[in-house]
Design a protein around this nucleic acid. Structure first.
Lengths: 302, 302
DNA sequence: CTCCGTACGAAAATACCTTTCAGGGGTGAC
DNA sequence: GTCACCCCTGAAAGGTATTTTCGTACGGAG
């Protein structure tokens, strides 16, 4: 638990503000959420307001506004305001367009496709913008040097964990994804310094993923958490925290969808990073995969 | 006093600041010119400075800085500073076009993130554009009405298959993802008209996914293929074909990455489509998921 | 040499931001 | 069901940043 506890360890975010608001919203108090929402809703408008103005607009106090700014990773309201102005200028100049409508029950199938694709693209952009490259680099280093890697995740996250393990295995690392919580803990006991453990949980509070990570942490392994809640319980036992983003959800679009997209991007980044670091051994392994795939090439149907 | 006569007649200038500086320079005094030049030279840097800071930097006084801001058309320095921040953000976002290149071994980690995110976004856009909504609609109808759904996929595709089965299960359908090819075939024998089977294979020629689909097809079940090769062998036995897209791959970016992204989007579309069609039963099930998640709200760390 | 006009900065005045503190409301324990 | 505790919250004090005011200095013209 070295590392200083603000989720936004890195410098303030420039364009990833909307994403950050969504990510941190759950850990905010009600009044803070009001402020954060106002800010995410209308950056340009809020940039024109003073602390007092924004406090009045959101029906809160100046103190709360400042607190919110802090939580979002800025030293104070002044800096948030500057970032807001920047954001406003950006979306003025044509990018970061408005939010799309939710998916409705009677949407034609073509709309469903378009909306889903758009939302997932958005999720990817948000995730990339909010990802702390410092933490990512540290995590990559830990994985690349690890003697052995355990991955924990249950439910939807278990698929992501398996994906990670599969990939790492393919470049010659010793990685294993555990789905069964009991077995995961049993295996975690085997870990020691020089090993690495990864827990994947969107909520950050899935006991079945936290428990094995805790054990690994206590045993001295380097631990990594991939979570949407950088302040969640799982982070207590994580040396490195990789934050995934949260998209707004709707009735027909469960949160699991975007969290999965986000988690997979993080996993891909980890994989490529590790592949870079272990290029000497990874390259032949990757080449072999191509070979294998190439054989399947164009068997020509009829 | 409806306001008039300032050089900047109406609203403050957004991006045309450099031009304005040049225009107004002749009418400025020496110290004002210094300030204006500093501002035009490095908007980002100046945006980070306070009045006092900028005054020191230019070797002038705060009063002069404010006067300059006024001359440039802003009510005061505060507003100039906001405009500066906006300008900086704009020219910041103007660059970063280098993402299109392949990922290299020595790419810094930040580039890796950007490139991967960009590529996956691209894949999503391609997939959405290429997806045949007619086929998709038919597939959705088949799944929604099916008495029982079997999903086949091996390797990376097996994870996608599991994702699909998990989702469908959650809205009350009877779906099962088979990873073991032998068991898959064994189970496929059980299918008959009114059932549905889905095979997921990027190459379109993975025997282990084709074989169970063939059996299901022969047994009279409605069959669906999710593949990147709409002319591959798997399609012989598919009533409905959903095409996934393939992004260019590179040494460090195996094809499996983008095919997975693409497949998942298709799976999500299927899921949402089915959820729409079975809304009566799906809605309560989805609501229950939210409940379960809501309970996890703000458990407060530490 | 004196007078006038303008430029400029120091310091006062103000507006804004930040911090501290104490009350209120909710939550968990008993 | 009651109590105690903790944390959110806003009011107000405290501190900075910005704006205004005002006086001085410099340069040119008479």
């Amino acid at each position: 638990m070295k590392e200083i506890f603000t989720g936004a360890s890195a410098p303030p975010a420039p364009a990833a503000l909307a994403a950050k608001v969504r990510t941190l919203a759950p850990s905010m108090t009600r009044s803070m959420q009001r402020v954060a929402e106002a800010v995410a809703q209308d950056p340009a408008g809020c940039a024109a307001l003073t602390v007092t103005g924004l406090a009045e607009l959101t029906g809160t106090s100046e103190a709360t506004v400042v607190r919110t700014a802090r939580l979002l990773g800025y030293p104070g309201y002044r800096d948030l305001r500057l970032a807001l102005a920047g954001l406003a200028a950006q979306q003025q100049s044509g990018r970061a367009p408005a939010v799309t409508a939710d998916i409705a029950v009677d949407d034609p199938i073509a709309d469903v496709v378009a909306k889903l694709a758009y939302d997932e693209q958005q999720t990817l952009a948000d995730t990339a913008a909010a990802l702390d490259t410092g933490q990512l680099g540290a995590a990559v280093a830990a994985l690349a040097q690890a003697r052995r890697i355990d991955v924990y995740g249950v439910g939807a996250s278990s698929l992501v964990g398996q994906d990670l393990a599969q990939k790492l295995l393919r470049i010659g690392l010793i990685a294993h994804a555990h789905t069964d919580p009991h077995l995961a803990v049993t295996n975690a006991v085997q870990l020691r310094s020089g090993d690495a453990a990864v827990a994947i949980t969107h909520s950050g509070s899935t006991g079945d993923a936290i428990e094995p990570l805790r054990v690994a942490f206590d045993r001295g392994a380097t631990t990594i958490a991939i979570t949407g809640r950088p302040d969640g319980p799982v982070c207590q036992y994580a040396d490195h925290i990789l934050t995934t983003s949260t998209a707004r959800e709707s009735e027909l679009r469960p949160a699991a969808m975007s969290s999965r997209t986000s988690q997979l991007l993080v996993v891909d980044c980890l994989f490529v990073g590790v592949a870079q670091r272990t290029y000497e051994t990874a390259a032949p392994a990757l080449a072999a995969s191509y070979e294998a795939l190439a054989h399947r090439r164009s068997p020509r149907t009829r």
